[in-house]
Amino acid sequence: MNRHGIFSAGCTLLLAFGLASTAVAGAASAPKIHWKSERITLPTSDLTFTGPGGQVLNTYCLMCHSADFVNEQPAVSLVTWKVEVNKMKNAFGAPIPEDQIDHIAEVLYQRFGPPKP
């Protein structure tokens, strides 16, 4: 079984031009792996929505994702916002009551305004 590596990683663009053949000829052997269990702690976000409709967004958006993701979105049409909110409910399973869908879409549309040309 051939366990010799064929690549040498971490090479810069300069190396990719100038010294690449050397880097490959002197290739490292197969990666040495020592399995070790891992547990990570992730940072959290305490960012919340304020202003008109902030409460309904805090109730139904933050259960799955942080508020930054919404704030970064582009302005899209009201119809597109409805598609997005429905996707969160129907595809991702967010427990958003049926009678809140249109309201949430309207709140988002008002926040971002009409799509920019």
Binding site: C11, T12, L13, L42, S45, H65, S66, F69
Partner: peptide, 24 residues
Amino acid sequence: ILQRVRPPLLETPWSVFDRHIFTP
């Protein structure tokens, strides 16, 4: 580059591609 805290979306800063053909 922070795109979203939870669940995480993290983007590689463009300067990294300037320095590395293999992304660290």
